[in-house]
Design a protein around this nucleic acid. Structure first.
Length: 435
RNA sequence: GGAGCUAUGGCACAAUCUGGUACUGCAACGGACUCGAAAUCCGUCGAGCCGCAUUUCGCGGUGUGCGGGUUCAAAUCCCGCUAGCUCCUCCA
């Protein structure tokens, strides 16, 4: 959520910056009207309440003295009724202010490119293994390159058909070495992050509505969430939700900052509005594994920590020897809560494109204000923490990238060296029977 | 899932039956004493949120788990909810 006092005080800039995020300035004007009315009403009702408090004290005093207070009581009857009426008006205005505020996205950081969509994103850097060209999996340019789902099905390690039979489209079974590879990948990721100082967590994967509100998924993006029927609970779309809400409503001892969490979790998304897109393979599923990173930082540290978190995600791809590039998302392509986002896209040779495998964002105090997570600065002043989140990485998409980039001409797949200790020293995936 | 109990400052608790200034202790902070500290004594102490004012001290509202209701007035009475504890039931 944005600071209403900023919008009030610097409304022209607020409108301009929100316009970059796709918000009609009229919406902001409407918000300011409600806010103005609300504050006028507060002043009215508060002076009545001050009066009531004073007279109530007098009545209490009189009763103790066994004196008659019925005149004051009669007088206060009307005041009480007026307060109730104004209180109701005020709570209506509060909810109108809240309704608009809750739907306003975060403001973009100054250096974020302004643009309506992904065309305005700006590439930051590219990376590929030094010996990429001489490796057997360097099939980037050749015609015989297979798609990851084709490789997986041929090897018998990915079973989309039975996933669809049992659950529906966009679900799958990993079978045998496929399941082992997935497990190797996320264990490797978690171990790397732990080494970088992240505390490993296992979180609830069902959360309540206030948690979904806290990180910014609700109220705006409910249609993409798997809700538990009748329970006001939701299967998490990302571990960012339970990890960030861990401290909701709390003051974090400032000597503990920055705090770094990592967790593997399944992520559930209805993918409403993406019908027909990326329908095949591991790219777009209703359920997928993801290793997530979350940080809580002092305000002045968050952008430095954003760079570090991005490097932590890149480290995984570098150790896996997978080519990638990093882009900075434009104002029109960023997520609701983000002030600045780097996407990391991994090279997928069969489609000849870079494909998103991680998204790393600084939300500044946007989530912390919704969740009320604070710390005290050097002057003992209460401040909102900054929160960051990033994938490190999407596990299924990593498996897909490994299959495509490490495929051999005989149909086998070489296992990246760093993963071999996680697979009993195995070096290749071959077609085998798993039945 | 069933029954009972509980929820009050950073912590521990009182006031709830019988509606009327939310008690006390510990901790914390300031001061006295001291070369310094401990002990002792004196004083301050409801976090957060909202509004107004602002160069500074501020003023008011809210705030006894959450949401309603009754009342001139709610920690207290009524209704709903949440969480925790105990017992029963169930379970990996």
């Amino acid at each position: 959520m944005l600071d209403i006092r900023y919008i009030r005080k610097d409304s022209e800039n607020a409108k301009r910056r929100l316009k970059d995020r796709g918000i009609n300035p009229d919406t902001v004007d409407q918000l300011l009207v409600f806010d103005q009315k609300r504050r006028e009403l507060i002043q009215k009702v508060e002076s009545l309440k001050a009066q009531r408090n004073k007279v109530s004290d007098k009545i209490a005093f009189a009763k103790r003295q066994k004196e008659d207070a019925s005149e004051a009581i009669m007088q206060m009857k009307q005041v009480g009724a007026d307060i109730k009426k104004l209180d109701n008006e005020q709570s209506l205005l509060e909810s109108q202010v809240q309704e608009i505020s809750a739907h306003l996205p975060n403001l973009a950081a100054a250096e974020v490119p302004v643009g309506p969509d992904e065309a305005a994103n700006v590439e930051q850097r590219t990376w590929e293994p030094k010996d990429y060209g001489s490796r057997p999996h360097a099939l980037k340019e050749t015609a015989g390159v297979k798609a990851h789902y084709e490789i997986g099905e041929n090897l018998g390690i990915l079973d989309f058909e039975r996933g669809a039979k049992v659950s529906g489209a966009r679900f799958l079974y990993y079978v045998g070495d496929g399941a082992r590879l997935e497990r190797a990948v996320y264990n490797f990721m978690l171990d790397e992050h732990r080494r970088e100082g992240y505390t490993e967590m296992i979180t609830p994967i069902v959360v309540n509505d206030s948690a979904m509100f806290g990180t910014g998924q609700y109220p705006k993006f409910q249609e993409d969430a798997y809700r538990v029927e009748g329970l006001d609970q939701t299967y998490i779309p990302t571990a960012e939700v339970p990890l960030t809400n861990y401290y909701s409503g709390e003051e974090i001892p400032s000597e503990d900052l920055p705090i770094k969490f990592t967790a593997l979790s399944p992520s559930f998304r209805k993918e409403a509005g993406s019908a027909g897109k990326d329908t095949r393979g591991l790219i777009r599923l209703h359920q997928f594994n993801k290793v997530e990173m979350v940080k809580f930082t002092r305000q002045e540290d968050s952008y430095n920590e954003l760079e570090k978190m991005t490097a932590d995600a890149e480290n995984i791809l570098q150790k896996l020897n997978l080519p990638y590039h990093v882009i900075m998302l434009s104002t029109g392509d960023m997520g609701f809560s983000a002030a600045k986002t780097y996407d990391i896209e991994v090279w997928m040779p069969q489609q000849n494109v870079y494909r998103e495998i991680s998204s790393v964002s600084n939300t500044e105090d946007f989530q912390a204000r919704r969740m009320h997570i604070t710390y005290r600065d050097e002057d003992n002043k209460l401040k909102l923490v900054h929160t960051l989140n990033g994938s490190g990485l999407a596990v299924g998409r990593t498996v897909a990238a490994i299959l495509e980039n490490y495929q051999n001409e005989d149909g086998s797949v070489t296992i990246p060296e760093v993963l071999r200790p996680y697979m009993g020293g195995q070096e290749k995936l071959h077609a085998t029977s798993h039945h």
